[in-house]
């Protein structure tokens, strides 16, 4: 177990390093001169011209004149010590901004996963137990819709229909959970539902297929033959085994939810990491994008390691080597 964990961690670190190299290179390969954008910002968006001297001064100030490997090393060595550099535009430390914003994104992801699990797993089991019934077809259609409609579209539809039909739109602003939980829940419930719906659809369909497979196993038939109640057969014998692939899906959907937060936070105007990274990408704000992508990648790596470790708890036959 410990060797397995150590190996996974080592591979995780290697993956993170590869991601860091990739995002560092992509940010610089992508067209668009960050010095021009900074100059425009410093001019307050006015129509003045920018001299080559101004651009050079900005490049030097931002450290963009140094060799690429030095820039990379400076960023990476700072990253592991909590010095993620300053935003090229706001000049504020990226790590400080991250600390302010991470709670918003984590809350969206966790809330959406809770919703997805609460809806998706029971719905999947229900479909399996009532295979080819009306219930099965209805829930399948709903889950297919969840898979087909991206969260930014469902969120936009929510806004538009809410405004037109009910004269309602989600509350604006952001209040932290620890300051006012009631208002916070009211602000987060809709984005969480929008992200969670897609995630629930994935889980429901996976749950249905694995549950159907398990329900056809001999040991389930034996359990029925022993006269066990259906609840006991389903919950204790079938569900636990059917959950293993679904747990894998939970790891994947959490990663997708992180990605989904980029758009959802903008639509619902929540000041999280998603909006931060989106703004950073549009402005070519290297330190912001690099650090946030690395954080996202690290989160996905950690979640997947946790998911893999949970197999052992769900299925005692699994051995870590």
């Amino acid at each position: 177990m410990q060797r397995y964990l150590a190996r996974r961690l080592i591979f995780g670190v290697l993956t993170a390093v590869l991601v860091s190299l990739l995002v560092f290179a992509l940010m610089r390969i992508a067209p668009g001169d960050v010095a021009q954008s900074v100059a425009a910002q410093q001019a307050g968006g006015e129509e003045g011209t920018v001299s080559e001297e101004d651009l050079e001064r900005i490049r030097v100030a931002l450290g963009l004149d140094r060799p690429l490997h030095i820039q990379y090393w400076t960023w990476m060595s700072g990253f592991v010590t909590g010095d993620w550099g300053d935003s090229l535009f706001t000049k504020r430390p990226v790590f400080d901004e991250f600390k302010k914003k991470i709670a918003v994104t984590v809350e969206i992801v966790v809330a959406s996963e809770i919703i997805a699990i609460a809806l998706g797993i029971p719905a999947g089991v229900l479909m399996a137990l009532r295979q080819d019934s009306k219930v099965d077809y209805i829930v399948r259609v709903l889950s297919l819709a969840g898979l087909s409609i991206p969260s930014f579209l469902s969120a936009t539809l929510l806004l538009v229909f809410g405004a037109y039909l009910l004269r309602w739109s989600p509350p604006l602003g952001y209040v932290p959970l620890w300051e006012d939980p009631v208002i916070n829940v009211k602000q987060f419930i809709w984005p969480a539902i929008m992200v969670g719906y897609i995630s629930a659809a994935t889980k429901a369909r996976m749950m249905r297929s694995t549950m159907l497979e398990v329900l056809r196993q001999d040991y389930i038939r034996t359990a029925h033959a022993k006269g066990l109640r259906e609840y006991v057969v389903t919950a204790r014998h079938a569900l636990k085994n059917a959950l293993i692939p679904v747990v894998t899906v939970i790891g994947i959907t959490m990663a997708l939810s992180l990605g989904g937060s980029v758009v959802i936070e903008r639509v619902f105007e929540l000041p999280g990491i998603g909006r931060y990274i989106l703004d950073g990408m549009l402005q070519r704000d290297y330190p912001v994008v690099q650090s946030m992508v690395l954080v996202f990648a690290s989160a996905v790596i950690v979640v997947n390691i946790v998911v893999d470790l949970s197999y052992g708890w769900l299925d005692p036959r699994v051995r870590y080597q």
Partner: peptide
């Protein structure tokens, strides 16, 4: 994108 436009135009 805006940043590319500036690079190509400025």
């Amino acid at each position: 994108e805006e940043s590319v436009q500036r690079e190509r135009g400025q």
